[in-house]
């Protein structure tokens, strides 16, 4: 069990997709203007990641090595189409807010990267732990980033007013420039934490 937990924990910090592996940044920057959007994006990506890691780790023996990348993409795109229609039917506001970035989960290097690096080489149970760990790791950075941007940009947190009526919104946090700046500073702070705290455990 401890072994599985180690795989899970890997995605949270040591191999965090955003600030360690530096992949999947397009949705990270684009949809993190509110906490709800950031969380929804994390969940949608996570669903596709977990489902495709399960399927690919199950059928990996039947996929010829030469055509594995196209096969992975076809499996991923099936789940992405499903997610897109599901969100459109049950959560239309979220589907509107995320818009283009739901179909773009297909080309999120995080998903294809994990299939290539993990699911195609490991048994299903390990792949599930890897996928869940990566999902949580991806989602927590998205939520932290979107919390910072929403708090300063709108003065709210997940729609709840924090600073009261007198607060002047910092428009820059909502604009594209603010996304780059916030993520840059956030990754810098996480690197600092990693160097100070992370080096103790190994």
């Amino acid at each position: 069990m401890a072994r599985y937990f180690a795989i899970f924990k890997n995605g949270l910090w040591n191999e965090n997709p955003i600030f360690k592996l530096i992949i999947g940044l397009c949705p990270t920057l684009a949809v993190t203007n509110t906490v709800v959007n950031g969380f929804a994006m994390g969940m949608a990506t996570g669903f596709v990641l977990i489902s495709s890691e399960i399927v690919i780790s199950l059928i990996k023996k039947f996929i010829p090595n030469d055509v594995r990348i196209p096969s992975f993409i076809l499996i991923i795109v099936t789940f992405v189409t499903f997610t897109d229609y599901f969100l459109g039917a049950f959560f239309p506001e979220i589907a509107d807010a995320l818009a283009l970035f739901i179909p773009l989960i297909v080309v999120n290097c995080l998903i294809l990267g994990r299939q290539e690096a993990f699911a195609s080489r490991n048994p299903t149970r390990r792949a599930i732990f890897d996928a869940v760990g990566m999902t949580v790791g991806f989602t927590w950075v998205l939520v932290v980033l979107s919390a910072i941007r929403e708090l300063f940009g709108f003065g709210t947190l997940a729609g709840v007013d924090i600073f009261g009526a007198g607060y002047t919104n910092m428009i820059i946090m909502i604009l594209p420039g603010g996304a780059f700046l916030t993520l840059g500073v956030l990754v810098g702070v996480l690197n600092l934490l990693d160097r100070k705290v992370g080096s103790d455990n190994g």
């Binding site: 530096i22 420039g177 996304a179 780059f180 700046l181 993520l183 840059g184 990754v187």
Partner: peptide, 10 residues
Amino acid sequence: MPITLILAGL
């Protein structure tokens, strides 16, 4: 990466 992101932000 962080400094590149900050440059991109500017």
